[in-house]
Structure formats: structure tokens, C-alpha cells
């Protein structure tokens, strides 16, 4: 039994991350998979959620905003609200125009949030980050494993909730309009559906879900810092969605599991194989290979591992316009 403990605790740890990522990827899937919105600033919206929840729930920091000590649930709701509000600002500016503008604007907000996270000492703790973010269940359970297992259960419950809610949403008339706009905007417009309003709703809901994922992350790690939300995070989340198959919520969850598994395994392997001094270079090479893989996937297998199923209301015909 004792020999099993490390494995068990690593597995819980790993699965908590997978379920947090899966929540975020589900939000991204609503935007890209079902509405065709290209969000390059996922890490930014996740960061907003993580910081919001941390500030709302954490104890008093000297010389900083905070000390509200609110329950974790309030933090999570707050995270969804602030991420949603940020999405509203970006969406109102960019969603009336061609897709490229959303890509550029979300790229911009992610960079700006990174700057605020690093420099706004009074709000985000700057380079030190926010420590002592409350971790639920640590007092109820004496052991770390117990607490982590309970948190995993919470994450899985939230993941299931988000999954069911989004599945209902995309199967509802609202979801059908989203797909209709994605496939043929002019046709949808001529049926009296205002594309901008539907896109904006989808974008805001998706970003709110990403904020929730950020909050889940913050309360598990117990610490929030700017370097947790670098552009590489956005890229990993995109890889999860594309590998799993956009337009399919099951694919999104599977993608989170597969990509995070491959990423941690290859990262561990790299650490074992490369000498200490060359690790930064090795990590760079890891990203190069995955960037090439993403491009290759677009060229040869644009629908991902699973992809959108035919006969779900939307035709699975994608890519061509």
C-alpha cells in the first residue's frame, strides 16, 4: 500500500491539472469549435480569473488590495464575472469585424494582462505573485493526498457541470444559430439572426468559463504568479483543442488529457536526458517540434483526432468557405 502512495498522489495531481485544463478547453471550444472565433489570448482570460479569485478569497496582504477573505465559491463566481467583462470589452471592439481583428485584439489583451500581473504590485503582487490563496479541504483532511483527492472530486464535478451546460447550450436553438453563423454568416443574417450579438454572447460565455478554470487552478496551487500565464499556456490549450478535435466537447476533454500527458512526459524525459546547462535550449526545441506538429496537423489533418460528429445538428463540413 505504501508503495502505491506516491503513484496515487501523482495521479491525483496530474488529473486535477487535466480537469482544470479540460474546463478551459471547453470554453475555448464554444468559441472556436462552435462559433469559429479565434482567441489568441486564452492565457490572459485564465489569468484574470485566477487573480480575481485569489484577491477575493485570500487573507490580507500588506500594502495591497485584498483581505476580503470571501468563500472560495464567491471567488469562482467573481472570476467568471471579471473574465466575462474583459471579454465584453474585447468583443465589442473586435467582433463586428473580420476574424483577424479578434485574433490581434485577444493577443493584445493577453500581453497587457501579463504586464499588469508583473508590474501592478498593489493589485497582483508583481513579480512575487499572490501567495496564501486558500486551498479548500486542506483543513478537513489531514493529509495532502486526502485534500488533493477531495479537490479532484470538486474539479471533476465542476467539469461535468460545465460539460453538461455547454452540451445543452450548443444543442439548443442558440447553439444551432452559432453553427449557422460559423458556416455561412450571410445566410444566417438573412434569416434575421444578428451575427454580432450571437458571437459576442458566445465569446463572453467562453471567456467566463476560462476564468472559472483560472480560479480552479489558483485554489489548487495556492499561489498565483505572472509566469503561470505566459503565451505558451494559450498554445498548450489550443493544442489540446485541435488534437482532440474542435467542435466536439468530448474531444476537448480527451485532448486535455492526451496533450497534458504527452507534454509532462516529454518534459520529464527531456529533463532526464539533457544536461543542466542545456535545459533552456531543450525546452525551446520542445516548443519548436510542437509548433511544427500544429502546422502539420492543419495541413494534413485539419479536423483533429475526433472532430465534429455529423448529424448533430451541424454538418461536419469545415474549413472550406
Amino acid at each position: 500500500m505504501d508503495a502505491l502512495l506516491p503513484v496515487l498522489s501523482y495521479a491525483t495531481f496530474f488529473l486535477v491539472f487535466v480537469s482544470v485544463f479540460a474546463v478551459i478547453v471547453l470554453g475555448l471550444n464554444l468559441q472556436w469549435g462552435f462559433t469559429g472565433l479565434f482567441n489568441v489570448g486564452v492565457a490572459g482570460f485564465v489569468a484574470i480569473g485566477a487573480y480575481t479569485s485569489a484577491i477575493l478569497t485570500a487573507p490580507d496582504y500588506p500594502n495591497q488590495v485584498g483581505g476580503f477573505g470571501l468563500p472560495v465559491v464567491v471567488g469562482m463566481v467573481g472570476a467568471m464575472v471579471t473574465s466575462g467583462l474583459a471579454a465584453l470589452v474585447v468583443g465589442v471592439a473586435a467582433l463586428r469585424l473580420r476574424h483577424d481583428y479578434l485574433a490581434i485584439t485577444t493577443f493584445g489583451i493577453a500581453m497587457t494582462i501579463q504586464l499588469v500581473a508583473l508590474n501592478a504590485q498593489w493589485l497582483t503582487g508583481g513579480a512575487f505573485g499572490l501567495q496564501f490563496v486558500p486551498r479548500p479541504f486542506t483543513e478537513t483532511f489531514g493529509t495532502t493526498l486526502g485534500a488533493n483527492a477531495a479537490y479532484l472530486a470538486l474539479c471533476l464535478a465542476i467539469l461535468a457541470l460545465v460539460y453538461v451546460a455547454l452540451e445543452r447550450l450548443v444543442r439548443s436553438p442558440f447553439g444551432r444559430v452559432l453553427r449557422a453563423i460559423r458556416e455561412d454568416e450571410t445566410a444566417a443574417q438573412s434569416l434575421g439572426k444578428r451575427a454580432f450579438v450571437f458571437r459576442l454572447q458566445s465569446f463572453v460565455i467562453g471567456c467566463a468559463v476560462m476564468g472559472l478554470g483560472g480560479a480552479l487552478y489558483a485554489h489548487f496551487v495556492g499561489f498565483v504568479a505572472a509566469e503561470d500565464f505566459l503565451p505558451i499556456l494559450t498554445f498548450q490549450l489550443w493544442a489540446m483543442l485541435i488534437v482532440g478535435g474542435a467542435g466536439n466537447n468530448r474531444g476537448a476533454v480527451l485532448g486535455a488529457f492526451v496533450v497534458w500527458g504527452v507534454w509532462t512526459l516529454s518534459g520529464n524525459l527531456l529533463r532526464e536526458l539533457t544536461p543542466q546547462a542545456e535545459q533552456a535550449r531543450g525546452a525551446a526545441l520542445q516548443v519548436v517540434l510542437i509548433g511544427i506538429a500544429l502546422c502539420a496537423m492543419l495541413v494534413w489533418r485539419p479536423r483533429g483526432l475526433i472532430g465534429e460528429r455529423v448529424g448533430e445538428g451541424g454538418k461536419a463540413k469545415r474549413g472550406g468557405s
Binding site: 469559429g36 479565434f38 476574424h99 485574433a103 498554445f235 516548443v287 492543419l298 472550406g320 468557405s321
Partner: peptide, 16 residues
């Protein structure tokens, strides 16, 4: 294909 595919591809190429 769709223009947005080119944007995603450029994103991957930039990273690489």
C-alpha cells in the same frame, strides 16, 4: 481554405 486557418498556421509557425 478559410482565412482563419492561415492565421492559426502563422501562429504555429511563429512559435516554431
Amino acid at each position: 481554405g478559410a482565412a482563419i486557418t492561415l492565421v492559426i498556421a502563422s501562429f504555429g509557425a511563429a512559435l516554431a
